[in-house]
Design a protein around this nucleic acid. Structure first.
Lengths: 233, 233
DNA sequence: GGAATGCTTCGGCTACGATCGAACTATGAA
DNA sequence: TTCATAGTTCGATCGTAGCCGAAGCATTCC
């Protein structure tokens, strides 16, 4: 009777409604913060923290620290496949829940991530910068090349005293809507500031969305042409 | 946040140790009485009765009255496949509840997976069938070739009305101890029944292990020679 | 009929774990 | 420095689910 793998442990982890909600939210493939997961699960941050550590101990999720944020994601594709299988089984037995409303497409297109650009456009921008040789990706590390420095000054971006701050020039940041990295750091901040300062885009009043004007969108797309999609850092 | 299938319900059902023990016992493929399941789970009959009604409500098991007995079994092969998948996942995360005891090697060598053969021998059998051209692997899909059909009838296995059932002839099932696929489906079931019927092997009384007799083992090994290890389906 | 077996239902006990408030740590911004 | 945000840890509460004893059906055997 005490043979084989401990399925009860996996079952218990998935069996709590709050944890199931978190895992379901993570099935989107996006890495989410604890705060976002708390909202998804409908519990407080303290409770969420407890659940997340249990899920991590159980090997269902993994976390990635990034500044004062912690991004949580499913541990691997095998975990996603398992959840998918259980969902399929539950559906086949008629165990369904309710349905909510849609999400804001503008947020997914372009939004502010603290101080830099995220979303589809943010990911596209980093891809393009890497493809054109302005930024060199070495694992998770990003570094600005001389060529990149030249291009920035061409556009009119001057970097203020790089050594004064401990903050790195370039940094990769995980994108929750795209599940890929976008550009953070001093350069990322400067680029977003540039777009806003030039009037290419403006921030939404009631959300983190960045709304591009038609001409700004044209400028952005020509400045960062979509190259061959690079593998994510 | 409340979208999609209710995986928490399935998780809760599997998450209780007593219920997990019962389900594991039922993975042997045989229908068991409430008393037998109570023994397997290590709880009293009253408690078992409560668990069984929950499992039945959840669609994981079904019961069949027969005289003053009630036989409980897994609801269907899909349920068996789900449990096997969870076992594989749990094993991959190191969630094992056994202390490596004497029964363990026997289980890893050959065991019953609901209604077909699993373990080292199960994996070997499928490898051999594919290598000899009896079964064709196309991604995850397995199909019986005319050559395979011929070989089966040679051995004395006749498949009953293939079109009457929606159940596929051949199906791959992930093996938790080997982390590779073994043969499920109608053919997998028929082969196991053949081994047991011919007296090549017998089922262990107290576990899912399949115990081969020396001559049965010789027959098995000659029937399914180890070829070059094929990449897993 | 009565006794025995197989299982379910009822009721009360208990323990575990989910929950949140409050305090604490860490990172970033002004 | 001070303030704000993100998250963890601690402590206490509380609900629920698992558990078993006892009683209640149901079936079979004598």
């Amino acid at each position: 009777m005490k043979e084989g793998p401990d399925i009860a442990r996996i079952g218990t982890l998935i069996g709590d409604p709050a944890r199931a909600n978190m895992l379901t939210a993570l099935m989107g493939g996006q890495a989410l913060t604890a705060t976002e997961l708390a909202q998804a699960a409908g519990v407080t941050l303290q409770t969420t923290s407890s659940h997340l550590s249990k899920l991590e101990d159980g090997g269902l999720i993994s976390q990635r620290k990034q500044g004062r944020h912690r991004y949580f994601a499913l541990a691997d594709t095998q975990t996603g496949a398992l959840l998918e299988a259980i969902m399929g089984f539950a559906a086949s037995r008629g165990h369904l829940r309710h349905r909510p409303g849609p999400k804001d497409p503008a947020l997914r297109k372009a939004r502010v991530c603290y101080d830099h650009l995220a979303g589809d456009y943010g990911v596209r921008m980093l891809d393009s910068l890497i493809a054109s040789g302005a930024i060199r990706a070495d694992g998770t590390e990003l570094s600005l090349t001389p060529e990149g420095k030249r291009r920035l000054s061409e556009v009119g971006i001057t970097l203020t005293a790089p050594t004064s701050s401990r903050r790195p020039l370039c940094k990769s940041c995980l994108d929750w809507s795209e599940r890929r990295s976008h550009l953070a750091g001093v350069v990322g901040k400067a680029l977003l500031a540039h777009f806003l300062g030039k009037g290419w885009a403006r921030r939404s009043d009631d959300s983190r969305a960045v709304l591009f004007k038609p001409e700004g969108e044209r400028m952005f797309l020509s400045l960062f042409p979509a190259g061959p999609t690079a593998p994510d850092a």
